[in-house]
Nucleic acid binder design. Sequence first.
DNA 1: GGAGAATATACCTGTCAAGGCATATTCAAG
DNA 2: CTTGAATATGCCTTGACAGGTATATTCTCC
Lengths: 112, 112
Amino acid sequence: MNATLTALAEPNRLRIVELLRDKPRPVGEIAKRLRLCQPQVSKHLRVLSDAGLVDVRPVAQQRIYQLRSEPFNELDTWLETFRRRVSDRMDRLEDLISERKAKKEREKDHGH
Amino acid sequence: MNATLTALAEPNRLRIVELLRDKPRPVGEIAKRLRLCQPQVSKHLRVLSDAGLVDVRPVAQQRIYQLRSEPFNELDTWLETFRRRVSDRMDRLEDLISERKAKKEREKDHGH
DNA sequence: GGAGAATATACCTGTCAAGGCATATTCAAG
DNA sequence: CTTGAATATGCCTTGACAGGTATATTCTCC
C-alpha cells in the first residue's frame, strides 16, 4: 500500500502511469511523449515495477510496459474504508466535544 | 491529486490519516497513540492540512484535526479511470504487437 | 497576571531520491 | 561479426524532506 503511494507520488511517474492507462508502451515511446530522457524513464519504470504497478514484456530489443491491476484494486479497497466514515465525522466531532466537556465537569467535581 | 498522493506517501502521515479515519482527534492524542514526538505530528498535520486532507478546529488550547472528504473523493474518481482499462490491457497488448509486426512488414516492402 | 498545558515554528543535521551523463547490455539485420 | 537501435545501470551531484531539540505562541485557570 505504502509502496504504491510512494511510487505514484512522484509527478513524472504519475504521468507515466496515466500514459500507460491508455495502452502498453515501450520505453522509448514513453520518453518521447513525456519529453523525458530515456535513462530517467527506465529508472522510473524500475520503481513502478518494484512496486508492482507495472509488468514488462520483451519484444525484440524493446520492453513493453503495461499496468497491473492489483495495486489499483488494493488502493480502491483501502479507499473504501473512508467512504461512510468521512460523512459521519461532523457528528462524531460533536460527540467528542461533549465528552470533553463532561470529562472536565467530572474532574472539577472530583477536585472538590 | 499529486499533492494528495505526496501527503499520503509518508508512512507516519498515512498512520495519522488512518487514525483520523475513526474520529477527529487533538494533536497530543495522535502523538501519544502513534508514539511520535509532538512537533513531528504538528508538522505532518501541517502538510496534510496544506494538501487539503484535514481540517482544524480549535477547542480551548487544543486543535482538533479531522479528515476532509474531497481529496478522497477525487482520488476515487481518478481511480475510476483505471477500472475497465486495466482489464482490457491484455487484448490491447496483442493489438500492439500485431500492429508492430504489420508495420515492420510494410517497411520491408517499402525498402524494396 | 503568572504558571502550566497544548500546540506551532525555527533551526540544524542526515538521509534519500531524482536528474544528468556516461557506459554496459541485448538484440536485429546485413 | 560488426553496426546500430533500444534499454538498463552506475556514478555523481543536488535538493527536498523527516527527525531532533529548543523555543515561541496561545489558551485556561487560579
